[in-house]
Simulated scan of single mutants.
Amino acid sequence: MKIYPYSRIKTVNLGPLLIAARLIGFISFILFAIAITLMIVAPFLESGVITQDLGSGTTLTFTKPNHTGLAIVASLWSVVSALATLAFSGLCAAVVSLEYTYTQSKQAATE
């Protein structure tokens, strides 16, 4: 059992395109993993206030920014980009599959 994308597709002339389709499919899987990670981590990115007493009545206050919204937007864009790269990868694999089918049918017709 082969685990890489489009493992059942064969080709005669378009080997580099098949390799590119597999690589792009793998990249889309990585983008999905990043999106899922961001969705899991986003609720834990909360803001807060840090105060430090400097003595003699002087206090410094720092506010940590809230990155939850940014993480949600980044995860949504990761999902969209993963779907787009997966669609492009599927299109490349479909071209390779059509080429193989055409080549096989042409060879069968000449024999």
Rank of each mutant, 00 (worst) to 15 (best):
G25F: 08
V41P: 00
I19W: 05
I27F: 13
H67D: 05
I19K: 14
A74N: 09
T63L: 08
A20P: 03
T59R: 11
A84E: 05
T85V: 09
G25N: 02
T37D: 08
Q104S: 11
F44V: 11
I34Y: 09
T110Y: 07
M1L: 14
T37H: 08
T61G: 00
A20F: 13
T61I: 15
N13E: 10
N13W: 15
H67F: 13
L91D: 00
L18E: 02
A35L: 05
S105L: 11
L60P: 01
M1G: 08
V12Y: 14
E99V: 02
T63H: 08
I27D: 11
Y102N: 09
S7Q: 11
A71P: 07
W77F: 13
T58F: 11
E111P: 06
A74S: 15
I34Q: 04
I27N: 08
T110E: 12
L60E: 04
A87W: 08
A42R: 13
L45K: 14
S7N: 14
A20S: 13
K2S: 12
L38F: 09
I50W: 12
P43K: 09
P43M: 04
A82I: 02
L60A: 03
Q107I: 11
I19C: 03
L45P: 01
T68M: 15
E111I: 09
A20K: 12
A42G: 00
T61C: 01
F62V: 10
D53V: 04
P16Q: 02
L18M: 12
S28D: 00
A93Q: 02
K2N: 11
V95L: 15
L60N: 09
K10N: 09
P43N: 00
L60D: 02
A87K: 09
A84D: 02
T11W: 07
P65H: 05
L31E: 04
V96D: 00
P65M: 06
L83E: 01
G25K: 06
L54P: 01
L86D: 00
I72R: 07
T59I: 15
G69R: 07
I3Q: 09
Q52D: 10
K10P: 00
A20H: 10
I34A: 03
D53E: 07
P16I: 01
L54H: 02
M39N: 12
A20C: 08
I19M: 13
L17T: 07
G69L: 13
G48A: 04
S89Y: 06
L86Q: 05
L98E: 05
T63D: 04
S97N: 12
T59C: 02
K2A: 10
P16Y: 04
K10G: 00
T110N: 08
S28W: 03
G25Q: 05
L31I: 04
S56K: 15
P5R: 08
S56G: 03
S7H: 14
I50C: 02
T51G: 05
G69Y: 06
I19F: 05
A20M: 12
A33D: 04
L45C: 02
I72N: 03
T51R: 11
G48Q: 00
Q52K: 15
M1N: 04
I50L: 11
A93W: 07
T101D: 14
A93I: 09
F88T: 11
Q52H: 12
E46D: 10
K2T: 07
E46I: 15
